[in-house]
């Protein structure tokens, strides 16, 4: 984006099937935006700029999941152009909410939404980027936390490991001194198995976590599903709880598919 870009690392932002919310986080980092733009060359970011520089790029931020043949090829090109490739958000990392098609007949979905289904070309499954190419780092969330994005860029520029926690939302919830909605109110809360990063917003707003940051490191999702059952949730409720924005992550998938077999 800037003309003085000779020695600055080049950043590219690629979009696949998504809502644009995660790449918007870069523009939403209002107080950091001009500083970031000063430290790096935002070389390819179509949502924000007409200027589109060719690769290779030092950092590629990938938003969205793969849902078309064309996109399955495009991600291969993107990978070849980027030294470090980072997925940003639940769509790129786990397939997103649109991965709910993976348990259904996509053709039926297409006929339901479009009057001429034969005009639409889409894959049977919505898949995360890592099912197609090696991914160097994942920024979680639906949407991502903009401060984690700024931290990731800053750490990469400094050549250090980004300080992004992999523990659960419960730790953030305690630190925020929010009342545990699972213990106090018996709500089905995904906090115990969900990676921190949002700041435990949902429990602080009096509702159960719905897991938008996806599975934490080594989650015991199956045990939490059993706990949900003890709290009086039926099978369908438990399946719906795990099957939202990170439904296709293998850890949540294992929990729901076990439950379906019972």
């Amino acid at each position: 984006m800037s003309s003085d870009a000779k020695h600055k690392p080049k950043i590219a932002v690629f979009k696949f099937a998504s809502c644009d919310g995660c790449q918007l986080s870069l523009l939403d980092a209002e107080e950091h935006l001009l500083a970031v733009a000063g430290a790096v060359d935002i070389a390819y970011f179509p949502e924000a700029s007409r200027r589109m520089l060719k690769g290779p790029y030092d950092i590629g931020l990938v938003e969205g999941s793969v849902t078309t043949h064309h996109d399955a090829q495009r991600i291969q090109q993107a990978r070849r152009q980027c030294r470090t490739l980072v997925t940003i958000g639940a769509c790129a990392t786990a397939g997103g909410i649109q991965a709910l098609r993976n348990w259904n007949d996509v053709n039926e979905f297409v006929s339901y939404v479009y009057s001429n289904p034969d005009y639409i070309q889409t894959l049977k499954q919505s898949t995360p980027i890592a099912e197609h190419v090696p991914v160097d780092f994942e920024l979680r969330g639906c949407p991502i936390n903009k401060y984690q994005l700024v931290e990731f860029i800053a750490a990469t520029l400094a050549g250090r490991k980004p300080n992004i926690p992999t523990y659960s939302v419960c730790l953030e919830c305690k630190r925020r001194a929010a009342i545990c909605v699972a213990v106090a109110r018996g709500l089905a809360c995904l906090g115990p198995v969900t990676q921190a990063g949002c700041g435990a917003i949902c429990p602080a707003y009096g509702r159960g976590c719905y897991g938008c940051f996806g599975p934490m490191e080594n989650p015991n999702a199956k045990a939490l599903a059993r706990r949900f059952a003890e709290l009086g949730n039926d099978r369908e409720q438990i399946l719906r709880a795990f099957r939202n924005f990170n439904a296709w992550s293998w850890q949540f998938r294992a929990a729901t598919e076990e439950r379906e077999q019972q």
């Binding site: 849902t67 098609r101 996509v106 979905f109 339901y112």
Partner: peptide, 11 residues
């Protein structure tokens, strides 16, 4: 328009 369809109404 080639935004990949996400099929919200479907799911």
């Amino acid at each position: 328009i080639f935004e990949p369809p996400r099929l919200f109404e479907g799911f």
